[in-house]
């Protein structure tokens, strides 16, 4: 029992298990969010009016049960809390992994583990992208946002015009497209890791999890990437 007592004395406040579980659950929340977000984005192909109506509906959804922008703020707060947990746990685990590995890094790891090994990098890129994206199309803060940004009013939304104006800047459009590739890589491994972290041992479940991780990541990536591309080649304007 002496070894157990020593273990207890050294045990950190947040164990690896707690961190991994928090990351898996918040990661699943993010994945569900970006999937729904992507479906909403695709409404851009149904025309500017339809897209703006959808953006406006998001603000006044479930009134009067929820106040104006109630749904948006519930989602924002839930996502912000998830982000804090996800990033904090990631930082803790990354630090512990570095210490455990010791000074000699692993070299010559295969391409099959590329998405897994680059999770901290793709995660940081996504964190930067999320900040840029909110400044660009939510708050309309320059220089992230385009010059023509128009904030939503109580009666109407200019989401379509803002989106097109933003993506017509080649650098911004390219950055959005690249960020979506990074998102695809992060989600592909993230969903598979979440299945493992939450204890998916069944043979068939694991096969399904592999396929679902890849397909969901690919769908999110391609669905979103298409939008800046179609804006840049002039189909959406």
């Amino acid at each position: 029992m002496s070894s157990r007592a020593r273990t207890t004395a050294r045990r950190p406040l947040l164990s690896n298990f707690v961190c991994k579980t928090v990351m898996a659950l918040t990661g699943l929340i993010f994945s569900a969010f970006v999937l729904v977000h992507m479906v909403g984005n695709l409404k851009v192909y149904l025309g500017g009016e339809h897209f703006n109506d959808y953006a406006h509906w998001l603000r006044e959804a479930f009134e009067p049960v929820l106040p104006y922008e109630g749904l948006l703020w519930v989602l924002r707060l839930a996502l912000l809390a998830s982000l804090a947990g996800h990033v904090a746990c990631a930082a803790l685990l990354w630090r512990r992994a570095r210490v455990a590995r010791g000074p000699v890094r692993r070299r010559h790891a295969g391409w099959r583990s590329f998405t897994a090994r680059t999770m901290p990098v793709t995660g940081l890129v996504l964190l930067f992208f999320v900040i840029f994206h909110v400044l660009d199309l939510t708050t309309g803060t320059a220089p992230a946002a385009s010059g023509g940004f128009e904030a939503a009013t109580v009666n109407t939304s200019h989401a379509y015009e803002n989106l097109v104006a933003s993506f017509q800047r080649p650098l911004a459009g390219l950055f959005y497209a690249l960020a979506m590739i990074v998102l695809g890589l992060h989600v592909a491994h993230g969903l598979w890791a979440a299945a493992n972290d939450l204890g998916a041992t069944g043979r068939r479940f694991r096969q399904v999890a592999v396929v679902v991780s890849g397909v969901v990541a690919l769908v999110i990536m391609l669905g979103n990437i298409s939008i800046p591309i179609f804006v840049l080649i002039g189909v959406l304007k």
Partner: peptide, 30 residues
């Protein structure tokens, strides 16, 4: 260290232990 389901371990394991072992560990802990 903590596991990130990187999968490098199963490439070298002489006994061919599958990644399912890690999911099993997490399942039992949960």
């Amino acid at each position: 260290g903590p596991c990130s389901v990187i999968g490098e371990c199963v490439e070298v394991c002489p006994a061919g232990i599958p990644l399912t072992a890690i999911a099993g560990l997490n399942r039992e802990k949960l």
